[in-house]
């Protein structure tokens, strides 16, 4: 979870508008206090309904979204993303969770979140993650990379037609390094590629995670309760 630290995503000139969705008021205020001043918290919500309303009203750039939320149909963060589907092009979702359960994480990523971090992450790290997501990149924690490797398997794809169901050799390397605790910058250095290329690979993996019709993915996540 320390991989996003010090990787230096380009700080946007203007403050990033953020909505925090979490049902614990203590956590929301703590998170607000932790975030960099270049992040403007423009709204907060504690339930699925509130969240969808606030997001529709504020059009934030990034939503920090708890995976488990009361209200709605019980779908939690997944339901908030589905309810804000019209904004998915402009508003990015970053999933926050204490649960660490593969099922929760994979389901919220597949709903459209651009990344996943644990709630124990530090203020600086979460600020970095917000910038990164706002810039269109994906945020992978070592744990999420571990999920991806476990779900997709550690053997590289060799046939083109199951491209969505397998990771390429390069993507596997990137995921492995992230799982080992490497920052994007360190991954780039290790593989002799640019940070931009690392980001491209990570985004490609995220896309596969979201779009893969691989039925094992959901089944796998349901079976694997704790990572």
């Amino acid at each position: 979870m320390n991989n996003v630290q010090g990787t230096g995503p380009i700080r946007p000139a203007q403050p990033v508008r953020v909505v925090i969705v979490d049902d614990h008021a203590i956590f929301r205020s703590g998170l607000k206090a932790d975030l960099d001043e270049s992040i403007h918290v423009v709204g907060e919500a504690a339930t699925v309904e509130q969240a969808i309303a606030v997001i529709a009203q504020e059009h934030p750039e990034v939503v920090l979204l708890d995976v488990h939320l009361p209200g709605g149909l019980g779908g939690g963060g997944r339901e908030v993303i589905a309810g804000s589907a019209a904004l998915l092009g402009t508003t990015k979702f970053l999933a926050l969770s204490v649960s660490d359960a593969a099922e929760d994480v994979v389901s919220v990523i597949r709903a459209g979140a651009r990344g996943y971090v644990t709630k124990t992450i530090s203020g600086a790290e979460i600020t970095d993650a917000v910038f990164r997501v706002a810039g269109g990149d994906a945020v992978f924690s070592p744990r999420l990379a571990g999920f991806v490797l476990d779900a997709f398997g550690t053997a590289p794809a060799d046939i083109a037609d199951d491209e969505l169901d397998r990771l390429s050799a390069r993507e596997l390397e990137v995921m492995r390094l992230i799982a080992r605790g490497y920052s994007y910058k360190e991954v780039a250095k290790e593989l002799f590629i640019s940070i931009k290329t690392v980001e491209t690979h990570v985004s490609a993996v995220l896309r596969k995670l979201q779009l893969s019709s691989r039925h094992e993915l959901t089944k796998w996540a349901a079976e694997r309760r704790l990572l």
């Binding site: 979870m1 320390n2 070592p142 550690t154 080992r180 605790g181 490497y182």
Partner: peptide, 22 residues
């Protein structure tokens, strides 16, 4: 002196463990 990342990977061929600090 900081957080330690441990990564365990078990595949058909071998078992690997990476321990990384900063």
């Amino acid at each position: 002196g900081g957080p330690v990342s441990v990564y365990l990977e078990v595949s058909d061929g071998r078992t690997e463990i990476f321990i990384k600090d900063r």
